[in-house]
Computed example of a mutant assay.
Amino acid sequence: VEQQDIKALRCVRSRLVQNRTAMVNQIRSLASESGVIFSVGRLQLQASLSRILADNEHELSHTLHHLLKFLYEDLCVLNEKINQIERDIKALCQIQPRYNALLSIPGFGPLVTASFMSELGSGHQFKNGRQLSAWCGLVPSQSSSGGKVRLGSITKNGSSELRVLLIHGARAVGRFASKRDDRLGRWFNALALRQGRHKAVVALANKIARIGWRILTSNDNFDVNKAFA
């Protein structure tokens, strides 16, 4: 039941985030018509819009000022709804026995962990971590001809949402990998040097997915020296 509840909350959150993104884009579009350009990022836009509405330094028309204020209030309501759902997701996840163990894996934030647990359940439907990463579409496609095996791009099979979240988590880890002086940092930096950063990020997503399966289906805890030996 908890697994279904977490997935239901994730579905609603996904829709609300899409609505928020559409609203932010609409605010940018309407404001740009009057020469008001916001910085990149939702938080930057909210802060700038709040100041503009307070002093109207750009001398917006009465109609546009009223409309942007209406959209800003709706945006604040959406933010609160999303934050509440995220708190509900976290509360449900915290009663799961392996939640904190999964959180210790680099790249596994609260949303990645919630998605991982609600999609996999116990995880015992997979024989090993490679089956899981193949189900997520994080393994390269293969083509054979004349006895030669060629590896292509990832298959993108299975759960697209979980795959995207794992890649986002891996990208966040890779952003600071140059500052890590452990086996994970050395493994990622060496791979990025040989294959390029984008391929290294996908490879790291594959790696942490397999590590996550191991942590979920056993009593082991994350050990960077064992995971990236």
Rank of each mutant, 00 (worst) to 15 (best):
F126D: 01
S34N: 04
T63N: 06
Y72C: 11
Y72E: 13
N157S: 14
I154S: 04
L16M: 11
S145E: 08
T113G: 04
S39K: 02
V12P: 07
T63F: 14
I211L: 08
L9M: 05
I37Y: 03
M23Y: 03
G158N: 04
R180Q: 13
S61N: 03
D220N: 09
S104V: 06
S153I: 06
T113I: 06
T63P: 04
V201Q: 10
K90C: 10
H168W: 10
L120Q: 00
I89R: 01
L193P: 01
F70L: 15
E2Q: 13
A205V: 02
L60G: 01
L184R: 03
L78A: 12
S48P: 00
A114P: 11
E161D: 13
S143H: 15
F126V: 02
L43W: 04
L204R: 00
G212E: 07
R10Q: 12
S160G: 03
V112L: 12
L111H: 11
C76F: 12
N83S: 11
S115T: 12
N100G: 06
T21V: 14
E80D: 12
H62S: 10
H66D: 11
Q131R: 01
I82F: 10
R87Y: 01
R51K: 12
G185T: 08
V17H: 01
L132W: 03
Q142E: 15
G196C: 05
S48R: 07
L45P: 09
L204V: 09
G158F: 03
V224S: 10
L78Q: 12
A114G: 13
Q142M: 12
L64Q: 01
A91R: 09
S32N: 05
N25W: 08
E161K: 10
L67M: 12
L138R: 00
F126G: 05
I95E: 14
K127Q: 13
A209W: 05
D223L: 07
I95K: 11
S218E: 08
R130W: 07
G123Y: 01
N219S: 11
S48V: 02
K90Y: 10
S145Y: 15
E57Q: 07
G196I: 03
D88Y: 08
N221D: 12
K179M: 12
